[in-house]
Amino acid sequence: MKIRKKKKSPGTVLFILPTVLLFVLLLLYPVLSSVFYSFTNKHLIKTRLDMVAFENYASVLRDKEYWNALLTSSKWTLICLAGQFLIGFTAALSLERIKHGRTLFRTLLIVPWAFPTIIIALVWKYLLNGVSGFIPNLLLKLNWVSAAPQFLSNKDLVFPTLVFINVWFGFPLIMVNVLSALQTVPKELYEAARIDGAKSGQQFFYITMPQINPVITLLLILRTVWIFNNFDLIYLITGGGPAGLTKTVSIYAYEVGWGLKSLGRSSAVSILSLIFLTIVIVILLQLQKKTNKNE
């Protein structure tokens, strides 16, 4: 049988034109302009611009601070992602089992996600302030510590503190999405598994996980990108300090672009991050493909 290819009418092309234009203007233009600027000595406020080939990339890659920032960003992404998934997943599974008050608990647990980052950052900064902060003073009053803990200035505490705040802030997104995915798994599959004698763990790994795998992969990709690129939370709480202990690639790029006003170098940092994240995403997608094949 011959399949006749349906012809696209001119109307259809014109109809999708606004979307294509929006895509080009809002997505492609910033990316392409960053690529272009990364090969120039573009200054934030100076109009003159010269091509410098790979000089920006070379100077960024030679900079020890960049590599430290990349290491911090990678650590930050991995630990936050693991924490968010662990708590988000656990909360979703618990809510799925709850018979009464599920909506109330879901609403309460999503509260952190509902606040703007600036509010979250300032509230936590206030709560953890080493002089007047509520938490250090509470710990002191409870005699759990002999001196007020300096959560944001102690070199051993500052990074875990930021990770905790980010996990607290980010887990509701995982929870809500996993919960929605869990509710789409047909109940008959569990019934059949139970009849066949499958235990809870087996049901989870052989029914639940394969069914919600596409949602998990999507969340994993999105959260990896968002956490890696997170700027506001860290910058507002510690500014990348003390002594650069919380300086991520985003803060490094900001300092180069807005402090040094070297938009060319800052663009090179962005493009390097784009390449890095693309590689990570490709690896994640390959892993998902492999998992799907095995299943």
């Binding site: 009418s9 001119p10 109307g11 259809t12 014109l14 109809f15 606004p18 234009l21 929006l22 203007l25």
Partner: peptide
Amino acid sequence: QYLTMALAITMGVGLLQGC
């Protein structure tokens, strides 16, 4: 088809005007 085309042109022009 004509109506679709007219609508698409109007939206496109509107978008450009907005920009």
